[in-house]
Simulated scan of single mutants.
Amino acid sequence: METTPHRAGHVAVIGRPNVGKSTLVNALVGFKISITSNRPQTTRHRLLGIATFPHGQLLLVDTPGLHREQKRAMNRWMNRAARGALEGVDAALLVIEAGRWDDEDTLAYEALKEAGVPVVLAVNQVDRVKDKTTLLPFLAKVAAEREFAAVHPISALKKKGLEPLVDDLLKLVPEQPALYGEDEITDKSQRFLAGELVREQLMRQLGAELPYATTVEIEKFELDGRMWRINAVIWVERDGQKAIVIGNKGERLREIGTRAREQMERLFDGKVFLETWVRVREGWSDDEAALRTLGYHD
């Protein structure tokens, strides 16, 4: 009996901000490794999600959303990170929102065509489309005007339509053994993931007030017996922003810390003692040198 060859390779996950790229990577990996929120530009770093299946392994490069505006150093850095993710990949997964194609989707598609890799289109959030009769004409229009190896309507949140998507992606990567062990889920350290989980709570709880003025630095990350002891510094750009993060009598900061700690305990499968501080560093998000010291490396 002929067996299906095992395949493994790198797939860049590309799209405009806030189309569900990180949610899709988490769904395929089976663990939450990429932070999510309903705010654009939640993802700032390239992150490898390792999705292992019986017949293959997809190394999913989750990226910041590509966007046209590059007013600040942070925006320029995120665009470089997204485009840099295309180097050396075997295929790309372009994620768009069902029923919508705009200039930033075109920007992402053009970047993929420039890279010269086969592109699979994932049309996400189909569960939100009320009139399903509009979906097929939309898919047909998008596919007729561009070149895709395959087109898949999916819901990353509800994990619908993912199996055929995986099958088509595996067809585009080389025949070879798995490149990572079955128990590996990302190339990022636990220390990095801890910082991201704090930042996720900042984006979720303060996104409307401080969309991009915060970042997180982990100053201490130690295992003390069975307890993880973690110190996190939340950096803001002005004193007024510091007051917003701390909240009335420290309530907001405690809530951020509690929720981040709960997520860490799930991910690290152990107890966590988390301490958080808020400090001011003026203009860090528009300062290339400051970005590098805070972990934003090309």
Score class of each variant (00 low, 15 high):
residue 175 E to D: 11
residue 132 K to R: 14
residue 30 G to N: 03
residue 284 W to P: 02
residue 298 D to P: 12
residue 47 L to E: 03
residue 107 L to N: 04
residue 193 L to F: 00
residue 213 A to D: 09
residue 8 A to E: 00
residue 239 D to S: 11
residue 5 P to F: 13
residue 190 Q to N: 11
residue 226 R to W: 14
residue 216 V to K: 07
residue 251 E to V: 02
residue 31 F to K: 14
residue 71 K to A: 11
residue 293 T to Q: 13
residue 286 D to C: 11
residue 16 R to Q: 15
residue 263 Q to H: 04
residue 130 K to M: 10
residue 279 R to E: 14
residue 82 A to V: 10
residue 209 E to H: 09
residue 164 P to E: 05
residue 149 A to H: 06
residue 77 W to A: 13
residue 152 H to E: 03
residue 122 A to D: 05
residue 231 N to C: 15
residue 171 K to L: 15
residue 3 T to M: 13
residue 86 L to C: 04
residue 29 V to Q: 00
residue 30 G to Y: 00
residue 289 A to S: 11
residue 51 A to K: 07
residue 99 G to K: 00
residue 134 T to P: 12
residue 69 E to L: 15
residue 15 G to I: 01
residue 197 L to C: 08
residue 139 L to C: 07
residue 239 D to N: 15
residue 236 V to F: 00
residue 195 G to R: 01
residue 168 D to E: 09
residue 256 I to A: 02
residue 111 A to P: 10
residue 51 A to T: 05
residue 205 Q to P: 10
residue 30 G to T: 02
residue 218 I to R: 06
residue 228 W to L: 14
residue 23 T to A: 09
residue 129 V to P: 08
residue 23 T to H: 05
residue 194 A to V: 05
residue 259 R to K: 15
residue 230 I to V: 08
residue 87 E to C: 07
residue 6 H to L: 12
residue 132 K to Y: 13
residue 89 V to L: 05
residue 20 G to I: 01
residue 97 E to D: 12
residue 43 T to S: 06
residue 181 G to F: 08
residue 107 L to P: 07
residue 30 G to P: 02
residue 209 E to K: 07
residue 272 V to H: 04
residue 196 E to G: 07
residue 100 R to Q: 13
residue 145 E to R: 14
residue 132 K to H: 09
residue 109 Y to W: 09
residue 113 K to C: 14
residue 285 S to C: 11
residue 28 L to K: 03
residue 171 K to S: 10
residue 259 R to M: 08
residue 16 R to E: 11
residue 91 A to G: 03
residue 244 I to R: 07
residue 95 V to I: 08
residue 264 M to N: 03
residue 180 Y to S: 05
residue 293 T to W: 09
residue 8 A to K: 03
residue 145 E to L: 15
residue 254 R to P: 12
residue 219 E to Q: 15
residue 223 L to G: 08
residue 298 D to I: 12
residue 50 I to T: 00
residue 246 I to D: 06
residue 37 S to Y: 01
residue 282 E to D: 13
residue 103 D to T: 11
residue 276 T to M: 00
residue 129 V to C: 09
residue 50 I to C: 00
residue 225 G to S: 14
residue 271 K to W: 13
residue 211 P to V: 08
residue 76 R to D: 03
residue 89 V to C: 05
residue 174 P to I: 02
residue 182 E to N: 15
residue 174 P to H: 09
residue 6 H to F: 15
residue 219 E to K: 15
residue 170 L to E: 03
residue 257 G to D: 05
residue 66 L to D: 01
residue 168 D to L: 00
residue 253 L to S: 08
residue 186 T to P: 05
residue 113 K to P: 09
residue 230 I to W: 01
residue 176 Q to L: 12
residue 127 D to V: 03
residue 297 H to K: 12
residue 183 D to P: 02
residue 79 N to T: 07
residue 74 M to F: 07
residue 138 F to Q: 04
residue 127 D to L: 03
residue 152 H to F: 11
residue 91 A to E: 04
residue 27 A to S: 00
residue 273 F to K: 12
residue 97 E to N: 04
residue 242 K to E: 11
residue 32 K to T: 08
residue 100 R to I: 02
residue 12 A to P: 01
residue 233 V to N: 14
residue 198 V to P: 04
residue 27 A to C: 02
residue 180 Y to F: 08
residue 288 E to S: 08
residue 156 A to H: 06
residue 260 A to C: 07
residue 119 V to R: 01
residue 220 K to R: 15
residue 72 R to E: 12
residue 261 R to K: 03
residue 201 Q to L: 06
residue 124 N to K: 02
residue 16 R to K: 14
residue 77 W to V: 11
residue 210 L to P: 01
residue 82 A to R: 05
residue 139 L to N: 06
residue 198 V to K: 01
residue 204 R to E: 02
